[in-house]
Design a protein around this nucleic acid. Structure first.
Lengths: 141, 141
DNA sequence: TCTTTGTTGCAACTGATTTGCAACTGCAAT
DNA sequence: ATTGCAGTTGCAAATCAGTTGCAACAAAGA
């Protein structure tokens, strides 16, 4: 675990403890390299240490969100995924068949932000966009 | 109720019944002239007929959604509102202070759709965007 | 090692939405 | 107008995602 050190320090600096459960939540997210729901994280986590409770996962996700490390995204229909915090403008591609979630480059949202701010004359805090369609894999099926 | 006739026909054509509860759900939405949560609709509904159950509201909303009349929108954080079905590309402005929800003209989303389809080479089914910021009223406070 | 205090697992709880069911009611056919 | 019956309702219970209270536990500084 090469990243652990930084995470441990971040936690300690804020008076929190670097528990294995917390580190593992980040580890799972790091391995997955995509956005995951709390349930998915919990499932992946249980393969290594079966005792971990779902509520602990939720608590860890909330904590890391407060610390600015992670960020929740509501995709509609009750789907909420967590991922690494990035820029304020955030886009997802959601395949309507297989549920696959892809990241949208910020370059797509930037013009939208610009046109909104220009039209309204005041700044936009953040944009959350979900684009629904069929992913390439599902198109050829 | 001048609109009722069309709604009644729509329902009957699909083998459903035009019950007062269902018609009233649409009526409330029509009066409100903005997106409402199920709870809000239920509250407005109860002023006229106190007996109406929340589950009936949910059932009506689901039905009208299936019939293509209404459309749910997830604004994140568990907020789900219902409104009249419009174009596939849908944008909301959400004031982060007062929670006010505004409609975004489709003209803002159209360039986004165009650039996405151009970049990927295949069509996008729909776009759901939430723009967060402070509404003019909250800015001056 | 000891102690302090943050953290965990568990179970119970919440708020939003759904569902099973007996009683009820549009409405098309009498 | 009356009837019959499938579609609907209100109610209560179930469900689902997420949160919380609490006693036992465990990081980490001394």
């Amino acid at each position: 675990m090469p990243h652990c050190v930084q995470t441990r320090r971040l936690l300690r600096e804020h008076g929190y403890r670097a528990t294995p459960q917390r580190l593992m939540v980040l580890e799972v997210l790091r391995m997955a390299d995509r956005h995951l729901t709390a349930e998915e994280i919990h499932a992946a986590l249980k393969e290594r240490s079966p005792g971990v409770d779902l509520s602990t996962v939720y608590r860890a996700l909330r904590l890391f969100t407060r610390l600015g490390l992670l960020e929740p995204h509501d995709l509609g229909g009750g789907r909420r995924v967590y991922g690494w915090r990035t820029q304020p403008d955030h886009g997802h591609f959601l395949c309507e068949r297989c549920g696959r979630i892809e990241h949208l480059g910020e370059e797509f949202l930037k013009p939208l932000r610009r046109s909104l701010e220009q039209a309204w004359g005041y700044p936009v805090r953040r944009i959350e966009a979900t684009v629904v369609g069929l992913c390439p894999a599902c198109r050829n099926a």
